[in-house]
């Protein structure tokens, strides 16, 4: 009962002092707002980069060209052999008949059409294929080699060399962008904590009086921590609004893809709420611990 009363008083006092020290509160809130906007932008960018790079990686397909004299039975048997290999996405092993491939090619270009339209199944130099996706793109080279060892497969292609380069570049991009986000969050934490520290410095006397009349340390820290929490929540409102409405507007404006269909944006749905939650959490935690650290300084005598 007593503990609840003290807690209630702390919460009440925290709200009071947010308003009583309005100019300082405003300074802290603005600092939190601005830094969190920067963090929000960088999180959105990073997650989108991660998203589209992995989408592109997922799109990489191995094409296995089958020998021309292959029979229907052998094609079915070959399927079993392929999915028995490691690193194969079983639901993404697709057989393509050579006549279908011709049709696609003819639909794409007039030149192909004029050449290919009279080819019969027997005359066509085009080969039947299996289009195969892998689960781990880093092992694609080995998987391609495994496929080459299978009897009825003639040639295996997947953009060798280029895919490896792409994977490497994407890996660097992802690592760098995550490092940027992490360091931005750290800088943000530092900035917010410092602003709060300065705000609390002006209330040194208040803390001394609290100590003087016999407030226990935790009783002194709690209202300030609640206050930091409130500042953190207030400071994250605008960044959250920007994330939710801004990103949705951006997504709709670009129709879900940036410049080309290869760069797909993450669908706003759950994503914006996740980012909002992260922002709120950063605001709250940093606000609270910033205050905690600042007050603690005055409690050591």
């Amino acid at each position: 009962m007593k503990a609840f009363r003290i807690l209630g008083r702390n919460v009440r006092d925290s709200f009071k002092s947010v308003f009583r020290n309005f100019s300082l509160s405003l300074a802290s809130i603005s600092c939190i707002t601005i830094t969190l906007i920067v963090v929000a932008v960088s999180i959105v960018l990073t997650l989108n980069v991660n998203n589209f790079t992995s989408l592109i990686e997922k799109d990489v397909t191995i094409v296995a060209f089958l020998k021309t004299d292959i029979t229907e039975e052998e094609i079915d048997k070959l399927y079993d052999e392929i999915i028995a290999l490691d690193n194969i996405e079983k639901e993404n092993v697709v057989f393509k008949d050579k006549m279908d491939i011709s049709k696609e090619m003819m639909a794409e270009s007039e030149t192909f059409r004029s050449i290919m339209q009279n080819w019969s199944r027997e005359e066509s130099p085009i080969q039947d294929t299996y289009q195969i996706k892998v689960t781990d793109i880093n092992l694609i080279h080995k998987t391609a080699d495994d496929l080459r060892k299978i009897d009825n497969i003639d040639v295996v292609k997947y953009g060798e060399g280029m895919v490896e380069e792409l994977v490497k570049v994407f890996d660097v991009i992802r690592k760098v962008s995550i490092a940027i986000v992490v360091s931005l969050i750290l800088v943000t934490a530092f900035l917010i904590a410092n602003t709060i520290k300065i705000a609390i410095m002006s209330r040194k006397k208040e803390i001394e009086i609290m100590r003087l009349v016999g407030a226990s340390n935790i009783n002194i820290k709690l209202p300030f921590m609640f206050e930091g929490l409130i500042l953190g929540i207030l400071g994250s409102i605008i960044p959250i609004i920007i994330t939710v409405y801004g990103y949705t507007a951006l997504y709709n404006h670009f129709d879900g893809q940036l410049f080309t269909q290869f760069i797909k944006l993450i669908h706003p749905g759950a994503f914006i709420y996740l980012v909002s939650l992260v922002l709120l959490a950063i605001g709250m935690i940093v606000g609270m611990f910033g205050s905690y650290r600042a007050v603690r300084k005055y409690l050591k005598i």
């Binding site: 001394e208 003087l212 340390n217």
Partner: peptide, 24 residues
């Protein structure tokens, strides 16, 4: 100990030259 100073402070009252009141 530092964290237990409040126990002493609750047993005594202190008055200063500059009053040390909360202005707000």
């Amino acid at each position: 100990r530092n964290g237990k100073v409040y126990k002493l402070r609750r047993k005594i009252g202190v008055v200063f030259q500059d009053y040390q009141l909360l202005q707000n």
